[in-house]
Design a protein around this nucleic acid. Sequence first.
DNA 1: AGCTTAAGTTAGGCTAGTCTAATAAAAAGG
DNA 2: CCTTTTTATTAGACTAGCCTAACTTAAGCT
Lengths: 218, 218
Amino acid sequence: MPTQTKENYLKALFFLDHKHDNITVTDLSKSMQVSTPTVNNMVKKLQSGGWVKYEKYKPLKLTAKGRKVAALIIRKHRLTEMFLVEKMGFGWEEVHDIAEEIEHVNSEQLFDRMDEMLGFPKADPHGSPIPDKSGHMLEPDYIKLSAAKAGTKARLRALDDSSMELLLYLNKKELELGMLLEIREIEPYDQSMTIGYPKHNNTILTREVCDKLLVEVV
Amino acid sequence: MPTQTKENYLKALFFLDHKHDNITVTDLSKSMQVSTPTVNNMVKKLQSGGWVKYEKYKPLKLTAKGRKVAALIIRKHRLTEMFLVEKMGFGWEEVHDIAEEIEHVNSEQLFDRMDEMLGFPKADPHGSPIPDKSGHMLEPDYIKLSAAKAGTKARLRALDDSSMELLLYLNKKELELGMLLEIREIEPYDQSMTIGYPKHNNTILTREVCDKLLVEVV
DNA sequence: AGCTTAAGTTAGGCTAGTCTAATAAAAAGG
DNA sequence: CCTTTTTATTAGACTAGCCTAACTTAAGCT
């Protein structure tokens, strides 16, 4: 069992792995908000534990074991977020920090029970997939709204970033997961989009926002 | 904000405070399962933080501030236990260890929400009182069943010890909080009691067990 | 009261996780 | 391809928590 700190490093590595192909010490240090020597020191320990493959001056790689540990923590995080929203009435913008702490609780039973009570959900409140008990997670191939053409109809399925700021912005715009969006117009100058969706017929969203909305074209 | 470790020391001090009048370094070291030098070192830090009053070779004392911090953690612990039992279907013998971890989660909202969902309970699943948000807790003056006379009718209200072993034993005997107990007979030789209660007319409980059952005479 | 035992304290050392400063290797760019 | 810049590593130090061994103070018992 890795310590709580090590679990956080593994989680960060897991996420970096899904973006870049080559994870550098610097990437991880930025993601963990610690100095590079700290990361250097830590990856050596993570290697001794068999969670990471590390060779001097080479990119970092998660081992299968490390990837599984990370996925199971993400599972606990996302189940917790879903539980907080669905069973305890929290808003989707309030749950991240709480889940960040509860994800380290050592109790299979607790999370299995949440899973059961939630009816074995496949995604968390932000649309991110929940890994199964063996650490596998299927990532639906949603596209960014910003990549869709004018006239497209698409359902909002997930967010590429669940920062409090974005979530509060979407709350204000009354944009929710599952809603059907229709791209009415794309402004050629700045790629901002005019979107229609329930209760909002012509809302303008900037490129920056559309980049973070993952949709399923219908 | 004390660290998680310090919170555990304060909690232990709080409980010791309710038993002995003079808390010694040795008491705390036994309760925390660490060496006396470790405790010695820690109480100095707890003093700098203003949670404990400490003078060399003198008994340890919690300050008002320390007592409040401890009570609030106990509040979080007991609300969590209650939530796990009432809202998530756990058995009263399963919840201690999980609550031991969740009690350190830093979110007033989480515990307030539990409190609300539970209807502001006054006791946890083992009958222990739940401190209020300002750290105050009223302890009902239940008596030990072992202190009652033959013929007494009393309601089981709380346990003086919630070890897994006792809880599993009580499960086996189908003894639950709130049940009306009637002392049919007390064996003079070993003080074991013959008790009647729902579905069990003549169960013998040893002195050791009766010492841990807190009742309200009716 | 004086000696013995128990309890508390100090000293010094260990791991986990962090840092800064200095150095070494790799990558980038003329 | 050689120099500069960026990135990675090493060295050494610090805090939080823990330990054992040695020593000191307090308590307990003739």
